[in-house]
């Protein structure tokens, strides 16, 4: 299969303090324990991402509000996500996410 990159601008305003309504997890290599990035673990029903409807479980988070997560460790990436949701996200009333999604081959 191949991988496609998608950019979503998800409005936060209607969900107020509930944020994006998504839980994300860190994945790593079983053998080397090298960090392999942050992935969507679940999309909370009724949350902003659910209403927006485009995000999928297991999408890999590439960037948030224009800040790349790729060169970061999973922990640094989580911190970046937390920070962008709290201050920047709410100030802008929306969060911009770039995700990578595996597209199954024919």
């Amino acid at each position: 299969g191949t991988r496609e990159f998608l950019t979503f601008e998800i409005p936060l305003n209607d969900s107020g303090s509930a944020g994006l309504g998504v839980s994300v997890k860190g994945n790593r290599s079983k053998e080397s324990h090298a960090d392999l990035g942050i992935f969507v673990k679940s999309i909370i029903t009724g949350g902003a991402a659910c209403k927006d409807g485009r995000l999928r479980v297991n999408d890999k988070l590439i960037a948030v509000n224009g800040e790349s997560l790729l060169e970061k460790t999973n922990q640094e990436a989580m911190e970046t996500l937390r920070k962008s949701m709290s201050i920047e996200g709410n100030k802008r009333g929306m969060i911009q996410l770039i995700v990578a999604r595996r597209v199954p081959g024919r």
């Binding site: 944020g19 994006l20 309504g21 998504v22 839980s23 994300v24 997890k25 860190g26 994945n27 790593r28 290599s29 079983k30 053998e31 960090d35 392999l36 673990k41 909370i44 999973n74 922990q75 989580m78 996500l81 937390r82 949701m85 969060i95």
Partner: peptide
């Protein structure tokens, strides 16, 4: 697959 969760989960 050679992938496992590293145990950290946060809600956004």
């Amino acid at each position: 697959r050679n992938l496992e969760e590293d145990g950290t989960v946060i809600t956004l």
